[in-house]
Simulated scan of single mutants.
Amino acid sequence: MVYAYANIIVANADSLASYREKAGDALAKHGGRVAQATPQQTILEGARDETGLGAILVFETVEGAKAWINDPALSDVHALRRGAGQSTITLMA
């Protein structure tokens, strides 16, 4: 298993709602799923300018995670996430 951390600073709630409708199937296509998501985060150490919606994603393989983010068939789904606000996804592998 490999993990990815996604953080979205939401600016467009409608785009985020549309993304959420499609995100599970898009992740599953490449062996991924959401392990945990929360609208509120608590920084334990250090500082960031802003936190947003945080999610831990789980993938079966690094290749699956990279396939998910680079899948041209999912470009409309990724566009919804990007349209929701500032998104950062970090692969932890």
Score class of each variant (00 low, 15 high):
Met1Leu: 13
Tyr3Gly: 09
Asn7Glu: 14
Val10Met: 01
Ala11Phe: 08
Ala11Thr: 15
Ser15Val: 01
Ser15Leu: 08
Ser15Phe: 07
Leu16Met: 13
Ala17Ser: 08
Tyr19Met: 01
Arg20Thr: 06
Ala23Glu: 14
Ala23Ile: 10
Asp25His: 07
Ala26Thr: 01
Leu27His: 06
Lys29Ala: 08
Lys29Phe: 02
Gly31Cys: 03
Gly31Val: 00
Gly32Pro: 02
Gly32Cys: 04
Arg33Ser: 13
Val34Phe: 13
Val34Met: 11
Ala35Gln: 11
Gln36Met: 11
Ala37His: 12
Ala37Trp: 09
Pro39Asp: 04
Gln41Ser: 15
Thr42Met: 12
Glu45Ser: 14
Glu45Pro: 04
Glu45Phe: 10
Gly46Cys: 12
Asp49Tyr: 09
Gly54Ala: 15
Ile56Met: 13
Val58Trp: 08
Thr61Leu: 03
Val62Gly: 08
Glu63Lys: 04
Gly64Gln: 02
Ala65Asn: 06
Ala65Arg: 13
Lys66Trp: 07
Lys66Tyr: 05
Trp68Phe: 00
Trp68His: 10
Asp71Arg: 04
Pro72Tyr: 04
Ser75Lys: 13
Asp76Leu: 05
Asp76Pro: 09
Val77Met: 04
Ala79Gln: 04
Arg81Glu: 05
Arg81Pro: 07
Arg82Val: 09
Gly83Ile: 00
Gln86Gly: 05
Ser87Pro: 06
Ser87Asp: 15
Ser87Leu: 10
Leu91Ile: 12
Met92Trp: 12
